[in-house]
Write a protein that binds this DNA or RNA. Structure first.
Lengths: 193, 193
DNA sequence: CTTCTTTCTTAACTTAAGTGAACGAGTTGC
DNA sequence: GCAACTCGTTCACTTAAGTTAAGAAAGAAG
């Protein structure tokens, strides 16, 4: 399991054996059961989550309704907003599948950064990469209709459509579950012609 | 003008006189006329833009139509996706007003970072702050209707509604100009009751 | 000042998403 | 095995956004 992490990291920066051992000694690997809530609305945490296996989900509860805004799967990470702001979280984070996660602590990170400046560079690269990717995603969302968004998802992250409940997918696409059902029926109808 | 920049920067990290002089000597301040296109689709640039005064706008041209996805006003910055990827840009950047900008070059930045490691820290803080803010914005966009988005904009960035053409605002809200007109009329109608 | 263009609004009509309700399939728990 | 629950789908109806077109208002150019 650790090897998966090292394979991922060394794509960005080379790591010495000492550095690898330092990472392992942090004891950050954690197995989590499906349905576990990692963060609740109102909580303040210093933990960030990185998915090695499985899928975690971020959602708001607005007027009693769950609104899913993001899924994180293999090799994707989530640092809750409240980690930086130290304000109560506006949203929940939970596991939609059994997961193997890396759970890291903000304090711990700064300590590691002190010892290995390389990690600072790594964090900067990763955060800028994510910022760029997210901007593209946001732009695509703004400029397309629900149907286009669904077709787009089918292209870019078709695994999500298989592994995630439809009603969670719906709010991820910015619509209601009924509309997603209808939209899918419409697409199938079109493809028959 | 330079003082505005220093005031902004020293909110994040303290700066020595030497560092301030180093910044000034880079000759990065630029006055730009309204309507100037800073980046075109298909171009590859290494320039980032930071707005000291005025407003710049990011837009796609899809099927002959302009789709505005972001505005950057005072103390906001834009690093085009193509700076990191070195792939042709998918979008345009232009000035919606006369602007005073800081135009910085990726090569230049790494040079400055070498001399003053503090700037590396500053970049990391700024990029993480922007990432967090953008995630919140994206979530709010996904979980709300066009009308709610407009009311939200009225609260959080009412200046934009005054200073930016309606048809650009419309695609920023993910709708057509006609729908924005109608939506505004609807809101006024409601408030009369 | 006049002309041309861009921008904004309004209207009628079409299309798609929201809403509320109902139904069957699959789970869970007793 | 049966009741309770969740989940996905379908239907009828309502509401809002897309589309096409036309006209008024404001700006820019000559």
């Amino acid at each position: 399991m650790q090897q998966i992490l090292f394979d991922f990291l060394t794509k960005y920066v080379p790591l010495t054996e000492a550095e690898k051992n330092a990472i392992v000694s942090l004891d950050i690997f954690r197995s989590v059961k499906k349905g576990t809530v990692l963060l609740r609305e109102g909580q303040i945490t210093k933990e960030s989550y990185f998915v090695l296996k499985g899928c975690i989900r971020k959602y708001y509860v607005l007027e009693g309704e769950e609104k899913t805004t993001a899924f994180y799967t293999e090799m994707e990470g989530l640092t809750p907003h409240c980690v930086a702001s130290q304000m109560p979280s506006e949203y929940y984070v939970s596991c939609t599948e059994d997961c193997i996660l890396i759970v890291s602590n903000a304090d711990m990170e700064s300590e590691v950064n002190g010892k290995f400046p390389k990690f600072d560079t790594l964090c900067k690269i990763l955060s800028e990469e994510r910022l760029g990717k997210q901007q593209i995603d946001f732009d695509a969302f703004k400029t397309s209709s629900p149907e286009q968004r669904y077709l787009n998802l089918l292209q870019s992250r078709s695994d999500l459509i298989q592994r995630v409940p439809q009603h969670q997918l719906a709010s991820y696409l910015g619509i209601k579950p009924q509309s997603l059902s209808r939209l899918r029926a419409r697409i199938i109808e079109k493809s028959k012609e």
